[in-house]
């Protein structure tokens, strides 16, 4: 699988650019992935990225977008737990893009 150099560290990614070894993740990698995805990271983006990392640590999966939306709503409030808000942050799909930035595998059921 391809290797990329991120902030002086060799990191393995899969053919779609997702991080292979979750434990290697750090903020530099997140920033690199964000540039790849053409996303400019703000506090709001980090909130979702960190939420995803916590979700993964607890359940060992990346959530489907419907599940992510619901869970974000529960934790951060209904003004954030909706598709419009999440797609504004991650226009090419919150689960797809935010998971990549968070260093998670592609969500199950993501075709």
């Amino acid at each position: 699988m391809p290797m990329v150099n991120i902030a002086g560290k060799e990191v393995e990614v899969d053919e779609e650019g997702y991080l292979v070894d979750l434990s290697q993740w750090n903020e530099d990698i997140a920033k690199y992935m964000a540039v790849e995805e053409k996303v400019e990271l703000t506090e709001s983006h980090w909130e979702v990225v960190n939420f995803l990392r916590e979700y993964y640590a607890e359940y060992q999966i990346a959530p489907a977008v419907r599940v992510l939306t619901k869970a974000i709503g529960k934790k951060l409030g209904p003004d954030k737990g909706n598709n419009k808000y999440l797609y504004e942050l991650f226009p090419y799909g919150p689960a797809k893009q935010a998971c990549k930035i968070a260093g998670l595998p592609k969500p199950t059921g993501c075709i």
Binding site: A64, V65, R66, G93, P94, A95, K96, G109, C110
Partner: peptide, 8 residues
């Protein structure tokens, strides 16, 4: 996955 939610 976002697409699948709408497919059904």
């Amino acid at each position: 996955m976002s697409d699948m939610d709408e497919m059904d």
